[in-house]
C-alpha cells in the first residue's frame, strides 16, 4: 500500500513498483489509507509524512493494533526533511525504516526487501546468526568471528551489536538502542553510543574512520548493513 498525497510521485512510484511485480494500492489521504488498510491487509506500507488530513502516527497505531489472523505489516516512512522529528517519532513508535525525499527507486526497493524479510523472520524463529563478508555473529553462542578469528567484545559491546544484528539492514534510532542496551532511563545519553560504536568499529571494521558495516544515520541512529543473502 502506498500512501502519498502528491499525484505525480504516487503514479511514478506505483508504476515502478508494479514493474517489480508488486500489487499496488494507493491512498492520497489518511482517511483513505485507514479504509484501505482495513480492507486489503497490505503486506507493506509506504507512508508519506505531511498528509493533508493528519498525522501518520495514527495510521501506524491502527496498523499495529492486534487483529486476529493478521500480521502487522512493515511500515516505511517517507519524509521530505532529513531532520524531521515526526519521522524519528514514528521510527521510535515502531515504523521499520525511513527514506528521505528525493530517493531513487533502487534505494526504495532495497529498503522494502529488507523490511519484508524482517517481517518474515519475526514470525519464524528469531535470527541467531548474522554473516556479512568475513564477519560472523552468532547470537546464541555469544560469539563473534572476524576472518575466522574470534573477536573479544565486552558484554555491552555485544549487547549493542546483537541489537543491531536483530534489525540488520534497518535503521535503529538512538533512543531504541539506548533503551534496549542501557535501559529506558538512559534514552538521552547519546554520548554512550558514540563511545561504544567507536569501540565496536575499531574491533569490527577494516578502517574505523570509514565504516562499511556499522553505518551512521546522522541525527537518527545507526544501521548495520544487511547480512549476505546466502546466510
Amino acid at each position: 500500500m502506498l500512501v502519498e498525497d502528491d499525484r505525480a510521485l504516487r503514479q511514478t512510484l506505483g508504476d515502478a513498483l508494479r514493474v517489480e511485480g508488486f500489487e499496488v494500492h494507493t491512498a492520497a489521504s489518511l482517511a483513505e489509507a485507514q479504509a484501505l488498510a482495513h480492507h486489503r491487509q497490505p503486506e507493506i506500507v509506504l507512508l508519506d509524512l505531511g498528509l493533508p488530513d493528519g498525522d501518520g502516527a495514527s495510521l501506524l497505531a491502527s496498523l499495529r493494533a492486534p487483529r486476529a489472523g493478521h500480521a502487522s505489516p512493515p511500515v516505511l516512512v517517507i519524509s521530505a526533511r532529513e531532520a524531521d522529528a515526526a519521522k524519528i517519532a514514528l521510527l521510535d513508535a515502531g515504523a521499520d525504516d525511513y527514506l528521505v525525499k528525493p530517493f531513487s527507486i533502487g534505494e526504495l526497493l532495497a529498503r522494502m526487501r529488507v523490511a519484508l524479510r524482517h517481517r518474515g523472520t519475526r514470525l519464524a524463529p528469531a535470527v541467531t546468526r548474522y554473516t556479512q563478508g568475513d564477519l560472523v555473529v552468532d547470537l546464541a553462542a555469544h560469539q563473534v568471528l572476524r576472518a575466522g578469528a574470534p573477536v573479544h567484545l565486552t558484554p555491552t559491546e555485544f549487547k549493542l551489536l546483537a541489537r543491531l544484528v536483530r534489525s540488520a539492514g534497518q535503521v535503529v534510532t538512538h533512543r531504541a538502542l539506548l533503551a534496549d542496551v542501557w535501559g529506558a532511563e538512559h534514552t538521552e545519553q547519546t554520548h554512550y553510543l558514540r563511545l561504544y560504536m567507536g569501540q565496536l568499529r575499531a574491533k569490527l571494521e577494516a578502517d574505523p574512520a570509514e565504516p562499511q558495516r556499522l553505518l551512521t544515520e546522522p541525527g537518527v541512529g545507526y544501521r548495520l548493513i544487511d547480512a549476505d543473502l546466502q546466510a
Binding site: 531532520a83 547519546t190 558514540r194 560504536m197 567507536g198 568499529r201 574512520a209 570509514e210 546522522p218 541525527g219
Partner: peptide
Amino acid sequence: LRLDWESAEEIIGTVLH
C-alpha cells in the same frame, strides 16, 4: 540547533561513505 554529543570519526565516516 539540534545539539548532541557527536564523534568526529563518525561524522567523517558518514561523509566519506
